[in-house]
Design a protein around this nucleic acid. Structure first.
Length: 561
RNA sequence: UGGGGCGUAGCCAAGUGGUAAGGCAGCGGAUUUUGAUUCCGCCAUACGGAGGUUCGAAUCCUCCCGCCCCAGCCA
């Protein structure tokens, strides 16, 4: 919480904040009240993080409050698991709704009374049309709709029927309560929208008390009004609903007058932020659950090792506007690297080991060397790492026949082992298949710690791990879940799934200090990237997820040619 | 062909009549015991297009073009 609050001073400017400033200056609004209104039918993803950061962020900046209100008006799709996960993820992101936890279902009784009120003033009626008939009579984009034959029912009959709907006398779909507005409106939302539908379905909170449930349109604005919300911020697709939102507030004796403002939802290339599709990925076991590290869900990002502060910073940089946009995933990755570079402890780990034997190092001997925990934050201190005669190097840090710009180890070449010594490759040992299985090197005792007293230079510094003083580990490398920037553009999201979205390395070696990381703590494996311990880890079998790699200009240079 | 929106650099995004912020990406260079980080420099005579108003227009007016959303008893 403290972290999220400290960031408010640096919050960007946008049209929402401009509106609030104007309202405050004109005295139209006393204190700012916002709300984040998730429907508990899935997990929150990074797109929701933008909305959460906006609503909670604005409330904090202006000394107001932000409510968490579950929009639980459709029991056929909502579950307690989602309610719990959503609350957990918002807290993890760094926001707090205090005592202001609400549910649209808290207002079912009041909403029902208001529905009767509309009936009494002649602005709502019970319609017996079937869903198909209703659709046929709604008209089209360029064709006006036609009035339902039930539209002229009198108040007494409407009241009686509506009460019997509530009492559960009719089957699902038999009747609905509709607002009486204008079947010829150019805005289709105003063509007598449905207020209540019959749903004989148990609700996570109200159980079997109700057999009719309010629609989103009938519940949302009135819930805002009941809670005293001043700014009801939602995404662009609800813009057409605003006249309806206002219509209810104008025709009902609500206690306050909230205003709805719309902003563009977040889209990121190479990723899909559609709850419906993410649900399918989980349901079809295309990923290992909502918290699979490849998922753009907050649960997935958390398990992946992404710090919540990086997500908040990303949201801040993306800004809030009304133009549809597709942000480059690189912007998100930058926010993650930027935060982790400042905060992550450095450790050494060899992902694909190649053994080297230092022939002039005493057999059976070993020694401890000092290593800096975080060069970006010296207060993180140092640790001791043990060095020995046999060490593992990264396979890709050696080439027998190196190309022009390869600076790392090669036959006859000298490099520095980080925090340790200069070593020189003297011999390449191969097996009968011609594969390199070991390197024989010599070291220079005078270069202890990594400095050459004679001032000679090396072109590379390599990370390493002592064979006898390292631990085995499994490392999971993640690649984009989708293989194209615009998944689903051809109509099928599944066809664009990246078949290589995860690569498992089974015989990595890590320095002992790396094993001390807690689940959820992300560290940097030097020269490699950021990694975090996965909850799949068990004693003797540590599992690390790669959060994100370091920028790699060498890899880039190679792929550019 | 109805209604509602949106078009500023490869990607986000400020700007609200006084002469185009910032970030990401990219490209040069410096530093570097992480080919990382950091630092320095470059990167829109131009704001979807065409007219017009004005001393002056991304900002005002007109017309045109393009893109997005809406025909659930989903939210």
């Amino acid at each position: 919480m403290a972290g999220a609050r400290a960031e408010t001073a640096a919050a960007g400017r946008d049209f929402i904040r401009d509106i609030i400033d104007a309202d405050l200056a004109a005295g139209r609004v006393g204190r700012v009240v916002t709300r984040f209104p998730p429907e508990p039918n899935g997990y929150l993803h990074i797109g929701h993080a933008k909305a959460i950061a906006l609503n909670f962020g604005v409330a904090e900046e202006y000394g107001g409050r932000c409510h968490l209100r579950f929009d639980d008006t459709n029991p056929t799709k909502e579950e307690q698991e989602y309610i719990d996960a959503i609350a957990r993820d918002i807290r993890w992101l760094g926001y707090d709704w205090g005592t202001h936890l609400y549910h649209a279902s808290d207002y079912f009784e009041q909403l029902y009374d208001w529905a009767e009120h509309l009936i009494r003033i002649g602005k709502a009626y019970v319609d017996d049309l079937s869903p198909e008939e209703m659709r046929a009579m709604r008209g089209g984009l360029t064709e006006p709709g036609r009035n339902s034959p039930y539209r002229a029912r009198n108040v007494a009959e409407n009241l009686d029927l509506f009460r019997r709907m509530r009492a559960g006398e009719f089957p699902n779909g038999a009747r609905v309560l509709r607002a009486k507005i204008d079947m010829a409106s150019g805005n289709i939302n105003l063509r007598d929208p449905v207020l209540y539908r019959i749903l004989h379905s148990a609700h996570p909170r109200t159980g079997t008390k109700w057999s009719i449930y309010p629609s989103y349109d009938f519940a949302h604005g009135q819930s805002d009004a009941i809670e005293g919300v001043t700014y009801s911020l939602c995404t662009l697709e609800f813009e057409d609903h605003r006249p309806l939102y206002d219509w209810f507030l104008d025709n009902l004796p609500v206690p306050s007058r909230p205003r709805q403002y719309e902003f563009a939802r977040l889209n990121i290339n190479y990723t899909v932020l559609s709850k419906r599709f993410l649900t399918e990925l989980v349901r079809q076991n295309r990923v290992k659950g909502w918290d699979d590290p490849r998922m753009p869900t907050l649960a997935g990002l958390r398990r992946r090792g992404v710090p919540p502060a990086a997500i908040r910073e990303f949201a801040r940089r993306v800004g809030v506007a009304r133009a549809n946009s597709l942000v480059d995933v690189g912007m998100f990755e930058h926010a993650v690297r930027e935060h982790l570079n400042r905060t992550a402890l450095r450790r050494m780990a060899v992902l694909r080991p190649l053994k080297i034997v230092i022939t002039n190092y005493p057999e059976g001997a070993s020694e401890e060397l000092d290593a800096v925990n975080n060069p970006e934050d010296l207060s993180a201190g140092t640790r001791r790492v043990r060095f020995g005669r046999e060490v593992y190097l990264e396979r890709e840090d050696f080439m027998e026949d190196p190309p022009k710009r390869f600076f790392r180890l090669a036959p006859g070449r000298e490099v520095r082992l980080r925090f340790a010594y200069f070593v020189c490759c003297r011999e390449v040992v191969k097996n009968t298949a011609g594969e390199i299985v070991e390197l024989r090197c010599t070291y220079d005792p005078a270069t202890r710690g990594g400095n050459a007293p004679d001032g000679r230079k090396v072109q590379a510094t390599l990370h390493w791990v002592a064979a006898a003083h390292s631990l085995p580990a499994e490392v999971r490398l993640y690649n984009p879940l989708f293989s194209r920037p615009d998944p689903g553009a051809d109509g099928d999201f599944f066809a664009d799934l990246n078949p290589n979205s995860v690569e498992i390395l089974g015989d990595a070696r890590i320095e002992p200090a790396a094993a001390e990381a807690a689940v959820g703590e992300t560290v940097q494996f030097e020269r490699q990237g950021y990694f975090c311990l996965d909850p799949d880890s068990r004693p003797g079998c540590l599992v690390f997820n790669r959060t994100i790699g370091l920028r790699d200009s060498w890899a880039k240079a190679r792929s550019d040619r």
